[in-house]
């Protein structure tokens, strides 16, 4: 066991690199996913058919084909004729993660916007606020806190999905885990270490997202401030900000999408 630890310490620089690559994939993918989500989410609720239909098709396409297929396609097929597009592996990973989870997240965006009370839209129209203004100042501030918990779930899914990167020659956390196993020849030790690293990354991201959620809810006037929550005073709402561990990492994208009737 002390041998294992020695190997582990020796490999610490690689571990740092692996975590860095996983984080790059996660954050890059998340930013792209967010862009995709809002573009397709708004596109899906557009009035004009030529914006709505393509958005729906793209969403269904990326949701319908698997992430594995998408990432492999980008990496193994795209460099071939007739495409001849050779992407950097990191770009491949970010692109696949961003498009795939962006498609799911667009359903969250659409669903959350649709679930803001109809009266809010009507009041904004009655005050003659312009369509952009309605969305920016009235609807989005109310839809955003609804989106965050579902985005949190998707973000954890994205971290987990990023493990595929090891198969497109990236030296991420998954790759490191395998490396550690080859060095120590101890499967249980190295995979426990690897999984724990993933767990810690997911846990920290969840904490950050929960903080974001508390803040958004507080801005909406429906929750305590972040400071109140962190003080760990017995505030009633701590239960629903998820004090214990990552929130359910479910495919809640569909939950978001189903809010609209």
């Amino acid at each position: 066991m002390s041998d294992n630890l020695q190997q582990f310490v020796d490999l610490l620089p690689q571990l740092g690199e692996g975590i860095l690559v996983t984080l790059q994939l996660t954050l890059g993918g998340a930013v792209l996913a967010l862009l995709v989500a809002f573009t397709l989410g708004f596109g899906s609720r557009a009035h004009t058919r030529w914006a709505r239909v393509p958005s729906r098709v793209v969403v269904e396409f990326f949701r319908g084909t698997s992430l594995v297929v998408q990432i492999f396609w980008l990496y193994y097929v795209l460099p071939l004729p007739p495409f001849y597009v050779e992407l950097d592996p990191l770009a491949c990973g970010i692109l696949a993660l961003g498009l795939n989870y962006g498609a799911y997240a667009s359903e969250v965006v659409r669903g959350s916007i649709n679930s803001v009370a109809k009266g809010q839209w009507e009041a904004a129209i009655a005050l003659d606020l312009s369509p952009v203004h309605r969305l920016r100042r009235v609807i989005m501030p109310q839809a955003w806190p609804l989106m965050i918990p579902m985005f949190t779930n998707l973000l954890i899914q994205l971290v987990k999905g990023s493990a595929l990167a090891a198969y497109i020659s990236l030296h991420d956390l998954n790759f490191f885990t395998n490396e550690l196993r080859e060095r120590t020849s101890d499967t249980i030790f190295s995979y426990t270490v690897g999984l724990l690293c993933y767990f810690v990354v997911a846990y920290l991201l969840t904490l950050a997202m929960n903080a974001l959620e508390v803040r958004a809810k507080n801005r909406l006037g429906t929750g305590p401030t972040l400071r109140e929550v962190l003080r760990l005073a017995p505030v009633q709402t701590t239960a629903d900000v998820g004090a214990g561990g990552p929130a359910p990492a479910a495919t809640t994208a569909s939950k978001g999408g189903d809010r609209d009737g």
């Binding site: 971290v159 987990k160 493990a163 998954n174 885990t177 249980i188 995979y191 999984l195 214990g244 990552p246």
Partner: peptide, 23 residues
């Protein structure tokens, strides 16, 4: 049990699969 559930849920299925296959 709660910890185990959180652990399995927030770590990659892919890594779990490889792990189990090796084990």
């Amino acid at each position: 049990v709660g910890f185990l559930v959180e652990f399995i849920r927030s770590t990659p299925l892919l890594v779990q699969l490889v792990f189990a296959n090796l084990l």
